[in-house]
Nucleic acid binder design. Structure first.
Lengths: 134, 134
DNA sequence: GCTATTTATTTAACAAGTTAATCATAACTC
DNA sequence: GAGTTATGATTAACTTGTTAAATAAATAGC
């Protein structure tokens, strides 16, 4: 699949950075979502970070242990788990973001900014195709 | 990542088909590679199917047990493991291929054939960007 | 108010991604 | 030709993807 190979390429640029800070690609996505959107319940985080809830449940455990995120129950709905970024997580974001942006920019320049914009638009359209039952 | 979401969409169309035949997406890729290219050593298969060798090693065990593929050593190089498609695998390919093509075609029509061609070209180009050290 | 149904999360079980380490065989050097 | 290095595959350990089942809390009907 062309999508796979392209993703491989992109991630190979970012992996060294993430490895240097001992976090996985998925943990990075969760941190970014929480950093951008503040407190959110687990389902929303999973949707925004494209992670399935069972995976997220597992990640919550290790990430709270490392002090990257905080976790609590929703007062109004005892089922919901509320997540928020914790100090260590915020610091990590602050440390890594400049690197991340630099890598993104390099990639964009090397590939071509217009092409990238076109590609992103096409991907977005594909991702939002109405379900099979046309 | 836009690539992730797009891939999710595409695979959601194919997953029911694969589930119905009890094979994973990766097994399907291995079978297709072996069906198209005949006998090949494990490294080549891994590269063509975008699967890492440790994953392939695990898959070989279960797939040979199910009679989907055959496995043997290379006579000229005792390190290499040669793989080929086995009868059950060929039959599965023959059974599933029509479905697969139909799904692909539906998707292509729904998305737009020209757009799809553009997208594939862009993805291919991205996947083949020279390594970071420009 | 109490059961039945939905909804959010978790657990379980298995397949695969990922990195590092190990093992076996080739190829190379002297 | 013995010792070293390089290469292909495997194993190990950990994380995540994926589906199905189980839990727990909220909502709906009666």
């Amino acid at each position: 699949m062309a999508l796979l190979r392209a993703r491989e390429m992109v991630m190979s640029r970012f992996r060294p950075m993430l490895d240097a800070h001992n976090i996985t690609e998925q943990q990075w996505r969760v941190l970014r979502v929480l950093d951008e959107s503040g407190q959110m319940d687990a389902s929303q985080v999973a949707a925004k970070a494209n992670i399935l809830s069972p995976s997220l449940t597992r990640m919550i455990r290790s990430m709270t242990e490392r002090g990257l995120i905080g976790r609590g129950r929703d007062d109004n709905d005892g089922r919901r788990v509320m997540l928020e970024i914790a100090p260590a997580g915020a610091m990590l974001i602050a440390t890594v973001s400049p690197h991340s942006h630099k890598i993104t920019q390099q990639l964009s320049e090397q590939y071509g900014e217009e092409k990238l914009a076109t590609l992103l638009a096409l991907l977005d359209e594909l991702a939002h195709l109405p379900d099979k039952t046309a």
